[in-house]
């Protein structure tokens, strides 16, 4: 929801479309937090600054300077906290922003320093060569997926993973390409646990949101319960056959005197060769007496049940 406030030029209102919508209670909690931070910072910094300054100035002047310094720093902290929702968006999109800036500035610089045909050629090479070479292209694409996946996960966390009362979402740490897809490390905030992510159908929803085949969530550290690993699978990396190395242990020059089991005449291998016989109760069948357990000889035939053998 959109909230207009005269007290703040930005913060809990969404200016451009990408800002996550901030709920009113969360906005209020941010404002309250900012006010508290302002007073605490002003007081602590002011006191410290006044103490230090009065060593050099007249005590009253020192105290005034300290208070002024504290108020300024408190205001900075206040502004930072109030602006945090917007700053956070910049932080989340930092790689894209930097990349975009690099492209624009690089393009401009190139155009200014070389003739048009040369700059076009250079651009064609820079774009075309990685696109033409398979491994490089896949590498670039997998890194691009890492960027995408972090945004998708953030969206999921905001959209349907239960958050705590402050609305703080899990911290999305590094993402790394794997042969199957991506692996993302996540630091859970107080109020969340692995179980919330594993709850009924959550991983399937994550998979849908990440445009993936499958998502698995597991602990990433034996020490910290908060550190969680999200494995996103989009490809089948295990399609080809793995050859066992065991034959390599066999010397090449073993003589072929391997014993062969006695041959068996090909009799009874087709249906007509096997006569239709009445089924006998298994108890009638003679069987070797088993030592140590005479009780099994008392037969209680249950017969053949093919459904067990499935």
């Amino acid at each position: 929801m959109r909230k207009s406030s005269s007290r703040s030029p930005f913060g809990w209102s969404n200016h451009n479309g990408t800002v996550t919508v901030i709920e009113a209670p969360i906005a209020r909690s941010y404002r309250r937090r900012a006010v508290i931070a302002f007073w605490v910072t002003s007081a602590v910094v002011g006191l410290l600054a006044a103490t230090v300054a009065s060593h050099y100035l007249h005590p009253i002047l020192g105290a005034l300077a300290g208070v002024a310094f504290g108020v300024v720093l408190g205001a900075v902290v206040f502004a930072l906290i109030v602006a945090w929702p917007v700053l956070r968006v910049f932080w989340h999109w930092l790689p894209e922003i930097l990349l975009g800036l690099a492209v624009v500035y690089g393009w401009v610089a190139l155009m200014q320093s070389t003739p048009l045909w040369l700059s076009l050629l250079i651009v064609a090479l820079v774009v075309g060569v990685p696109a033409a070479i398979g491994p490089v292209r896949r590498r670039v694409m997998s890194w691009a997926w890492c960027l995408i996946v972090r945004h998708r996960l953030r969206l999921c966390f905001a959209a349907f993973i239960a958050t705590n009362r402050h609305g703080s979402l899990p911290l999305i740490l590094l993402a790394r390409p794997t042969p199957a897809g991506e692996r993302v490390w996540v630091w859970l905030r107080p109020g969340l646990s692995l179980r919330d992510l594993e709850a009924d159908g959550q991983v399937q929803k994550l998979a849908v949101a990440c445009w993936a085949n499958e998502v698995r969530v597991m602990r990433a550290s034996r020490k910290y319960a908060a550190l969680v690993r999200v494995d996103i699978t989009r490809r089948e990396p295990l399609a080809h056959t793995i050859v066992s190395p065991l034959p390599d242990y066999v010397p090449a020059d073993i003589p072929s005197n391997a014993p062969t089991s006695p041959g068996m005449p090909p009799v009874g291998l087709d249906l007509p060769e096997v006569p239709d016989q009445p089924v006998t109760v298994p108890a009638d069948a003679p069987r070797p007496r088993k030592p140590r357990n005479p009780t099994t000889d008392t037969a209680s035939p249950s017969g053949f049940d093919p459904s067990d053998y499935a």
Binding site: L238, I242, S244, P245, L246, P247, V250, I254, A258, P259
Partner: peptide, 19 residues
Amino acid sequence: KAAYLTDTDIIRVADYATW
């Protein structure tokens, strides 16, 4: 993905082991 021993491989290893 499990490693795979073809029948020829198995026979080779088994013959050697027997020997």
